[in-house]
């Protein structure tokens, strides 16, 4: 069987795995690297459950062969919290009940992460349109939108505080 070495830096940790070229990134993350936070939903790129960040941009890991991202930096849900401390997005999802079954949550969090990091001043409507890339079957999106907006505001305030402290 034709195998290829693929080097990935996932959540800051670099590993090399030997995989068949057909192996999907989501399966490499889950099976070879043991990171089962990234989920499989539709396996044809529609639902967004498998969303991860590749070099800071969200992608579908179910329609990406791992060989296609050889050398890339990947971020997954497991990289969000700092130890005991939840990422503001995670904390706001918890507070606003932006999740019910939790299955779409990792993909939704990573997509939200890209949205907020790309635009700290993101509006409610932009969040709603932005997360339309990812399906959620439980929440009807309302509390997810609330949570992302709250996290954005919090992160902006935190960063203003940090900047202010430095100045």
């Amino acid at each position: 069987m034709d195998r290829h070495d693929v080097t990935l830096t996932v959540n800051g940790r670099t590993s090399t795995v030997s995989v068949e070229p057909r192996k999907l990134l989501v399966d490499v993350l889950r099976e070879d690297l043991g990171l089962t936070g990234t989920h499989v939903g539709c396996e044809h790129g529609v639902c967004g459950t498998c969303t991860v960040l590749r070099d800071g941009e969200s992608i579908r890991s179910c329609t990406t062969f791992a060989v296609q991202v050889d050398g890339a930096e990947i971020r997954t849900v497991e990289g969000l919290a700092k130890g005991a401390e939840l990422h503001p997005l995670q904390d706001e999802f918890w507070d606003k009940q932006g999740l019910q079954c939790g299955y779409c949550t990792p993909g939704m969090l990573m997509r939200a992460c890209e949205i907020i990091e790309g635009n700290p001043d993101v509006t409610h409507d932009q969040v709603r349109e932005g997360i339309a890339s990812n399906l959620c079957r439980c929440t009807g999106y309302q509390f997810i939108t609330e949570a992302v907006c709250a996290a954005a505001a919090r992160m902006k305030a935190d960063s203003a505080e940090t900047t202010g402290a430095q100045a």
């Binding site: 069987m1 034709d2 290829h4 068949e20 070229p21 057909r22 999907l24 399966d27 396996e43 044809h44 062969f65 060989v67 050889d70």
Partner: peptide, 11 residues
């Protein structure tokens, strides 16, 4: 729903 095997090159 997994893809069939193939050979791969990235020129």
């Amino acid at each position: 729903m997994k893809p069939p095997p193939f050979q791969y090159a990235a020129p």
